[in-house]
Design a protein around this nucleic acid. Structure first.
Lengths: 238, 238
DNA sequence: GATGCTATTTCTGTATACAGAGAAGGCCAT
DNA sequence: ATGGCCTTCTCTGTATACAGAAATAGCATC
């Protein structure tokens, strides 16, 4: 291996306060890989392999895996090491159901007590979505859609809720990405956004909440339709 | 220290599948201490001290702390080690707000799709609460009240929601315990339970949801009233 | 040829050694 | 006496060594 070098200058100068240790660094990197789908569900994460890949010892690798495990991204199978969590379809539906409720809560609070600046941020994110929608750019829409939802979270005036929503959103991210394939969804999605934005701006908390809940739930249901093909793909990939 | 002895027989024979490692064991024990309030907010958790207390090396102690940190129970202060999370009052209010929403969701689903057996379990838990209430036994009520709420979670038919609700309930537990001191609260709480149970049994999802939300929110508000004294107590204890 | 027993290897949890960075405390100078 | 600097000590992150248990494979026996 090598002498413990602690963080080299490539990391200290980043704007982030975070990555003060190799384990943190590793956790972030691997989490990103999982969230973007680079490590698919069921992928093995061997601690010694991981350590070798990052040129560190087993200790930080282990610590990173432990953290990812605690966050639910990976799970430890007895005597089989860590694997990226394979969330069964029904569990995913449950997660979408909860996500819908959290987002609905965000929308309600955003309508009721979001600041003018936060409302403007929602509008701006919405307009960005419009452009991606009109340009029929699914990748851009996927990204901007997330920002739109984040803008709503941010207007809730409840930091804990914001954190929870973002965490769950992140866990669902690799699965939501699948929905890109359903092209017609984008237009529908944008229309729904439009109604949600109107309700929030009008201060109609109940409408905003109901509309956003339906918006997310329909994603979950659309997703459920895709589950079968996902399972098939996964089996084919193995 | 001693030779690595792995789990001694005191742990394997427990019904649990879990505590296959010292770090797990440690995590559970320390979490329990935090949740019951034995380690109050701000308490330092030194990894070498902890290791010594459990007669293990730093490694499992570290791993336990990392897990607790990932779960939000403790936080790492730079150059100051781990301390039990000191959740500011406003953050706690936010957490109660989210808790209320999750529980309301549980109640709605319990009313809508809880099984007969699950409804009976709710009734049974409610009756147990009644006895503790009539016996004016705050400790028993505190415990049975939790079971009542758990019974509602369990009737939601959404395992992910159940898990999330339990996790958040657990994080809030040390703070809810404070409310024991407000004696008059117990009778009120029981009355609210009564209404909630009626709504769930009647299948009135909206009423069940609204009532449970109000029930939790009021706890949060009551709690907020206590915050000042808590802060005072904490400072006095230091 | 199949099955069971044993030996070896691998895997994972734990202990320990080590090194660098901060903090603390003492010393010198002004 | 006080402020700045240097020395030491502690604290924490990382590497590595080690040991026990399970998996695997090879061998022998039926």
């Amino acid at each position: 291996m090598q002498k413990p070098f602690f963080w080299d200058s490539t990391h200290v100068d980043s704007g982030q306060v975070h990555p003060s240790s190799l384990s943190e660094q590793l956790r972030e990197d691997v989490e990103e890989q999982i969230v973007t789908g680079a490590y698919g569900p069921g992928a093995r994460l061997d601690e010694v392999e991981l350590a070798a890949a990052f040129n560190v010892s087993r200790t930080p690798a282990r610590e990173a895996l432990i953290q990812l495990g605690a966050a639910g991204f990976i799970e430890k199978r007895q005597r089989k090491g860590w694997v990226v969590a394979e969330i069964p379809a029904n569990r995913l539906c449950e997660m979408f159901e909860v996500m819908a409720e959290l987002e609905a809560m965000c929308a309600r609070l955003a309508a009721r007590r979001g600041t003018e600046a936060e409302h403007q941020a929602i509008l701006a994110a919405h307009e960005a979505c419009r452009q991606a929608c009109e340009a029929k750019d699914p990748d851009a829409y996927f990204r901007l859609n997330e920002e739109f939802h984040f803008a709503i979270y941010n207007a809730s005036q409840n930091q804990f809720l914001i954190d929870q929503a973002r965490v769950l959103q992140r866990r669902l991210r690799p699965y939501r990405r699948l929905q890109l394939r359903v092209r017609s969804r984008i237009g529908k999605s944008f229309e729904e956004h439009e109604a949600i934005v109107k309700a929030i701006m009008a201060g109609d908390a109940d409408a905003a909440s109901a509309l956003l809940k339906a918006h997310v739930v329909v994603q979950g249901e659309r997703f459920a339709d895709l589950v079968a093909s996902l399972e098939a793909c996964k089996r084919a990939a193995q």
